[in-house]
Simulated assay, not measured.
Amino acid sequence: MFLKKLFFIRFLYNGKTVDENVELMEIALSTEHRWLDEWNEDGYENLYPKYKNGGCKAKLAKEQFKKLDETMINIQ
Rank of each mutant, 00 (worst) to 15 (best):
F2P: 02
F2T: 11
F2N: 06
K4Y: 05
K5F: 12
K5M: 12
L6A: 14
L6R: 06
F7T: 07
F7W: 13
F8K: 01
F8Q: 08
I9V: 15
I9Q: 07
R10Y: 08
R10A: 02
F11D: 08
F11S: 04
L12T: 02
L12D: 07
Y13K: 09
G15F: 04
G15L: 13
G15V: 10
G15A: 13
K16R: 12
T17N: 08
T17H: 09
T17Y: 08
V18N: 13
V18P: 06
N21C: 15
N21K: 09
N21Y: 05
V22A: 05
V22P: 00
E23C: 02
E23I: 03
L24T: 03
E26C: 03
E26F: 00
I27T: 14
L29H: 06
E32M: 15
W35D: 02
L36N: 11
L36K: 11
L36H: 03
L36F: 02
L36P: 01
D37R: 11
D37I: 07
D37S: 09
N40R: 13
E41S: 09
E41F: 01
G43P: 10
G43D: 15
E45K: 06
N46Q: 09
L47Y: 06
L47S: 01
Y48R: 15
K50T: 14
K52S: 15
N53Y: 06
G55D: 15
C56A: 14
K57E: 14
A58P: 01
A58C: 04
K59R: 14
K59L: 08
K62C: 08
E63V: 11
E63L: 10
Q64L: 00
F65Y: 09
K66Y: 06
L68M: 13
L68Q: 01
L68C: 07
E70D: 11
E70L: 14
E70R: 04
T71F: 10
M72W: 02
M72A: 07
I73K: 05
I73H: 00
N74G: 10
N74F: 07
I75Y: 10
I75T: 12
Q76D: 13
Q76L: 14
